[in-house]
Design a protein around this nucleic acid. Structure first.
Lengths: 336, 336
DNA sequence: CTGAAAGCGCTTACAG
DNA sequence: CTGAAAGCGCTTACAG
């Protein structure tokens, strides 16, 4: 009963041709007489033949799969990136293999090596650091496009306007009278944290506001750490009147802390939009970095490379970031 | 420069043995003299040999990959399932290929067929309907475990206690004095919607409360539709005083609608926890179905099957669901 | 314990 | 336009 898999040889026999010819028809190759082509097509249909992707990959030395590595699929930001890539890849006949690095360079390296072993056609990567150890493996082989964070060297990347966005968001708070604006972020090993911190500093400098070191908190990977940091900031001698949160996880933590302390008069602008941001009270003002748009860009670039586009001049595309005022970022500086 | 891939033959030559022996060592096979084993190991290390998974898959007729199909990775519930499976699979040497069905049976079917073509070792599936067309393809071949929704027939599945949870949640609202409790859900083609609707009805019946058809709204796939439905319910002649929302997307939509209409006195219990549910005001009472736990269960069952566990008696495991009271579900029935 | 050889299912020069 | 044959890199009966 366990119907043996239908092979190209079966098709060839049924059509009365060689496997070579059958292969040519299946792959829409040239040099096949119309009537022969028809016979083979009929055999394919009749037998329900589907090429074995594994055999094909072995022979071609390339698998019709694209490998995706993100920090974590449980984070809606990265999940959206993966979702977007998958939705664009499948209709093109590309499978999507996914890995989560957990923001661990070792895991990231292992995943990329695994994907390379498997001879994926291309890679979409969110690198943990600026110079991942696998970079040398990428030269001249498997096209790769980095997303959200660039790497050192000549590689394709699609990222958001981190510095510009952070500058914009911080200025927005300044324009509402705030002078003591805290910066909340993840590890500075991560490119986006540094770029956004730069933007924050530029904005303050532009208004002649000194950067108070005690207001800059980095190293918060998840909401709980960010919430704890906000608790500390609020309890300090000279607490901030506003918070610029440099990523979604920090924003969620910050907002939680403010709500649980009933300190929602503290202004907040967060980098990265998130579900329910508009339902909270006050609704949260964010810089929307459009992860789906970024991922679409990156996938498109990868597809172009797979289709033979020159990889000669890799470039970093910067996608603009939009300020979405919703309330929390427009709170005035409370008189102290 | 493009260092040719190191093959098993290279290892064999280097160690002065046949590829057969080299293969045995690489696969920890028996019948190899200790010193030979050592020589081969040394060669592997020296050359940096890594087996080609594609060749291996072709030969074995089985790929060390597990295929996962979910509704959408952009939905945190399904993303958590995918994330959990991936995190458990990779350390076991299994790659994870993912597909999103978009709740479209045709896409779902295409993905499963693709995965089967690729000879994945196993499947983790969230089926759109109760009897997907690919079910016959699963008999006696590739182990599969269904998640969140069961299918007709003898298959392994891990699901939440939908009916029991819904009964519990509805009773909770009844216990706070509500009698006009709306039911909000996705399409009734989806198993969980039906099971939860059953639980809702049972709870009402248990208290002798008639089910008012005008309070039962299904067919809301996303938050906007749910929000619109809530708008309509509130505007009706006899509006509900409480809402039982049967999934996270509906809950988000419902909560948005209540907030934007300033009708947050309406009680809400939602099936499925979600980020920020505890930060909203009122915080949202939910039935937590623990997607990570469900996925862990399912992955474990799949790994057991891959390790040779008997697939003779497939079973549906039901994971309990916990009520998390946070405020919205404990609002009293407003005097009308 | 070890190896020569076949074969997984396909693609692709190479001839004709 | 068509086909015989080699080969992608591995695993696995089969002999010895």
């Amino acid at each position: 009963m366990s119907a043996r898999r239908v092979t190209l040889l079966d098709v060839a026999r049924q059509a009365g041709v060689s496997v070579t010819t059958a292969s040519r028809v299946v792959n829409d190759g040239p040099h096949v007489r119309a009537d022969v082509r028809e016979r083979v097509r009929a055999a394919v249909a009749e037998l329900g033949y589907r090429p074995n992707p594994v055999a094909r990959s072995l022979r071609r030395g390339r698998d019709a799969t694209i490998g995706v590595v993100v920090d974590s699929l449980a984070d809606i930001f990265f999940a959206t990136i993966a979702d977007t890539v998958e939705r664009l890849a499948v209709p093109r006949g590309l499978a999507v293999t996914i890995g989560s690095s957990g923001r661990d360079p070792v895991r990231e390296q292992g995943l990329v090596e695994l994907f390379l072993q498997r001879q994926v056609a291309g890679l979409i990567l969110v690198p943990v650091s600026d110079s991942p150890g696998y970079l040398p493996l990428l030269g001249r082989g498997t096209p790769a496009v980095f997303v959200d964070r660039p790497v050192d060297g000549a590689f394709d990347a699609v990222i958001g306007d981190d510095r510009g966005g952070a500058r914009r968001g911080t200025r927005h708070l300044l324009s509402h009278g705030h002078r003591r604006i805290a910066f909340l972020g993840d590890s500075t090993l991560i490119h986006t944290t540094r770029a956004r911190l730069d933007g924050y500093r530029e904005a303050l400098a532009g208004d002649g506001v000194p950067v108070a070191d005690d207001l800059v908190v980095t190293g918060c990977p998840q909401p709980p750490e960010a919430a704890a940091a906000v608790d500390r900031l609020l309890a300090a001698e000279a607490p901030p009147t506003a918070i610029f949160s440099s990523n979604m996880r920090c924003t969620v933590g910050a907002v939680s802390a403010l709500h649980s302390r009933s300190r929602t008069e503290v202004a907040v602008v967060g980098f990265g939009d998130f579900p329910l941001a508009d339902v909270l009270d006050p609704a949260v003002t964010v810089l929307d970095q459009d992860p789906a748009g970024v991922a679409t860009h990156a996938a498109q670039r990868l597809f172009d490379l797979l289709d033979g586009a020159s990889a000669e001049d890799p470039a970093t595309s910067v996608v603009p970031v939009h300020l979405v005022p919703r309330g929390s970022g427009e709170l005035p500086c409370a008189p102290s």
